[in-house]
């Protein structure tokens, strides 16, 4: 029995060590690549946030813009991503963070330590401080093989240096779509309600919103909040509590909040969920953003003087 236990334990320990070694080497390599990565000189304005901004800003229309929005990215991930980018990057002059009603809801807290954590956090793992990495590994212990494998796969993607070591880029494959009532209802339910009723506000997200602002201040970078449009019917269904909270938060950030005029009643500008812009809507929205006073785009976005 002793020999059996010893041999089995040795075999399993070696398997574990081997996988752990591969894991740590890959994570280290990703971290190293992200530290060495430099953006193109032309990128001065950075858009970050979740799928709302990822779908909304067609950065190829303006050379100075870089859309690094990523679906399901909460402010916790945005903060650590931005921190890693700004650690070596000194050409970025302005950061625009997507801020919408759903960012106030705690449904997205599950993206960090909840059930969706392994899928979402694997792309950011190498950018996180050690204590958060350990926290994620511990909280996902029951999905450890899948979780660590996803992190390694992400690292192999990063190792191919043609990819950025930071998740997020413009993506919108939704042509000829339009907002639909049933999808809007579902979306509202997902974002603002649970079985218990109305979702609480996410203090976790709001704290990191403050952290992002502070980080930009510290790095002497302009910081703005920007709202990607939602369809008018969707807007009508947002719970009053959230409308109020949104108002008070934007009031707190009144200097930083950008207001972009947009026709929110045109169905074809939206995906069926009424919560994201279609490609057609993104074209219109990008154009509107370019016309904002803070940019003199596309003529001369490249110097600090043009940024208010």
């Amino acid at each position: 029995m002793k020999s059996f236990l010893f041999k089995t334990a040795s075999f399993l320990a070696l398997s574990f060590l081997l996988i752990a070694l591969i894991f740590f080497l890959f994570v280290r390599s990703s971290k190293k690549i992200s530290k060495e990565y430099t953006f193109s000189n032309e990128h001065k304005v950075l858009f970050i946030g979740d799928s709302h901004i990822q779908n909304a800003i067609i950065d190829s229309l303006c050379p100075g813009f870089l859309n690094m929005g990523k679906n399901s990215e909460t402010y916790y991930y945005s903060y650590h991503k931005l921190k890693a980018i700004l650690a070596t990057e000194n050409k970025i002059e302005r950061v625009l963070l997507s801020f919408d009603y759903h960012n106030l809801s705690n449904y997205s807290d599950a993206f960090f330590l909840g059930e969706k954590s392994p899928v979402i956090s694997s792309e950011y793992f190498h950018l996180l401080p050690k204590k958060y990495q350990i926290q994620l590994l511990v909280s996902n212990w029951d999905k450890l093989p899948t979780f660590t494998r996803q992190i390694i796969k992400e690292s192999t993607r990063i190792a191919d240096r043609s990819n950025r070591p930071f998740p997020g880029k413009f993506r919108n494959d939704f042509f000829r779509t339009q907002a639909e009532d049933s999808s809007i209802q579902k979306r509202i339910q997902t974002q603002f309600y649970s079985k218990k009723g109305l979702n609480d506000f996410s203090q976790f997200n709001l704290n990191y919103l403050d952290s992002i602002r502070l980080l930009c201040q510290k790095k002497e970078i302009y910081f703005n909040l920007i709202q990607a449009p939602v369809y008018s019917d969707y807007l009508d269904l947002i719970p009053e509590e959230y409308i109020e909270k949104y108002r008070s938060t934007t009031y707190k950030f009144s200097k930083e909040t950008l207001v972009v005029p947009f026709d929110s009643t045109t169905k074809s500008y939206f995906l069926p969920d009424g919560d994201h812009l279609s490609y057609e809507g993104a074209e219109v929205f990008t154009e509107q953003v370019l016309n904002l006073d803070v940019f003199n785009c596309p003529k001369n976005i490249s110097t600090n003087k043009n940024l208010q």
Binding site: F11, L14, S15, L18, I19, P145, R149
Partner: peptide
């Protein structure tokens, strides 16, 4: 056998 474990993992 370690290879099999790795394949199962991967």
């Amino acid at each position: 056998y370690q290879l099999i474990v790795l394949l199962i993992y991967w």
